[in-house]
Design a protein around this nucleic acid. Structure first.
Lengths: 238, 238
DNA sequence: AAATGCAAAAAAATCGATATTCATGACTCC
DNA sequence: GGAGTCATGAATATCGATTTTTTTGCATTT
């Protein structure tokens, strides 16, 4: 059975080779978009059925997500979606500002034409997507920000930034995409960062990047007071 | 069979409850102490036999170690010990300096008597161990450094610092503990950091911490030129 | 009536077997 | 004679069943 293991038919994500990969990406998406509540128990058997794969890949995927801080592993009591709290959110914001500033400054210091090209391209693609689906825009948005940092040539730092970015995204979904952060002129903020970066003005670029984050942070902060970590993440209905 | 699953008899490490935990800690120890060469293939079956457990816990442990940057997962070709390079080492050093400075400053800003007590205690225990086993000293050394940072109340940052600390340890073992970094007066460096910290002189503490790291870094740098990542981590004999 | 201990049920963890995938080397075709 | 192709062997990845652990509900005792 399980013939579509080697699907490749509807390759939205590039060639989901292994079952573990499939489980990882799908669970990650579900966690980021808030399909699991913070602290919610992640029962192996439910997921196994829902994803139509064995328990081993599920467990492996959850183990991988643990290191991304999206899932918590409880000694011999399985897994649950990471809890959420205002403190956690503020820490993510703080670390993002600090680490991304470091990476951005290094990127600018390492300036190359290839990097400039890639950043401009990423910015353009993001601008194009924004009119269409929110899903695609989010992907392009992350890509733009990561491209800005990618010139730093510090792989571990980049991984940290990527993880923090995702954690932040999760909060945005948890707070509800409803709060239209499109009210602010996001596009102009992005353009400003891009402009400072390719003009190699590190101070200005860093400042604009931080403002970009802090504004979003201020938007979300407060919305989260209602959802401080519940003592037991037991969900009501099935 | 496998009766000693629930051992608990010789609880060196506090109660190795699950097989996954056992595998994780043992593999982690082996990776940190250089029992696996950088890039070396980690065959499931070998490990399964060596650790006397099934393949599932081994795979799960390796998945967890992947997120600690100690193991690399290759698409459908299993796992291998992380490669090592001078660039990687220098990145670790750079990030350690930056992140630990941030954490230390925050710890000092959050000063409390409880924190002061814990730091003094950790320092004393480290000093006591140093005469005895190297193994125990390493543990106490890490504990001292992490205690210094623990007051910052930023769990994610602490986890990053802990990971980076371990990665650095690995390089120390890879370069051979032979290079007696005891030549320097490590003890005095530690005392200096402790002193500045409990006197709440953030600038001085940060400076001393960075010197502490950079000196060790300078020691190791160069020793590593001979071991830049091999293209294929194939080990010779069994 | 509350607390404690016990038993049944649920869930997690682990195992061993099977199916896939990848690597190696011989063989054929050009 | 060299390059490409197919068969063989090794290793990984996955599955489904079994074992272990935790949780829940109930009966008993104080």
């Amino acid at each position: 059975m399980n013939i579509q293991t080697r699907s490749g038919i509807k390759g939205d994500t590039p060639a989901e080779s292994s079952a573990t990969q499939k489980a990882y990406h799908e669970l990650r998406r579900m966690l980021l978009t808030g399909e699991f509540l913070p602290g919610e128990k992640l029962k192996i058997d439910r997921l196994r059925t829902a994803l139509d794969i064995g328990s081993s890949p599920v467990r492996e995927a959850l183990s991988l997500l643990t290191s991304d801080h999206l899932v918590e592993r409880i000694d011999q009591r399985g897994f649950r979606a990471s809890t959420a709290s205002n403190e956690n959110f503020l820490e993510i914001l703080t670390l993002r500002c600090a680490l991304e500033e470091m990476a951005l400054r290094q990127s600018i210091a390492n300036y190359s034409e290839a990097w400039e090209d890639s950043v401009v391209l990423a910015h353009h693609r993001m601008a194009r997507e924004s009119r269409d689906h929110v899903e695609a825009f989010e992907a392009a948005h992350k890509h733009f920000h990561m491209t800005l940092l990618a010139g730093c040539s510090l792989p571990i730092l980049l991984k940290f930034c990527s993880q923090l970015y995702d954690l932040n995204i999760r909060y945005r979904y948890l707070a509800g995409r409803s709060l239209n952060y499109q009210k602010r002129d996001i596009a102009q903020e992005h353009a400003g960062i891009l402009d400072a970066a390719i003009r190699r003005d590190a101070d200005l670029a860093a400042e604009r990047l931080q403002n970009h984050y802090r504004l979003t942070g201020a938007f979300l902060d407060g919305f989260l007071s209602s959802m401080t970590t519940p003592p037991q993440g037991r969900r009501a209905g099935a």
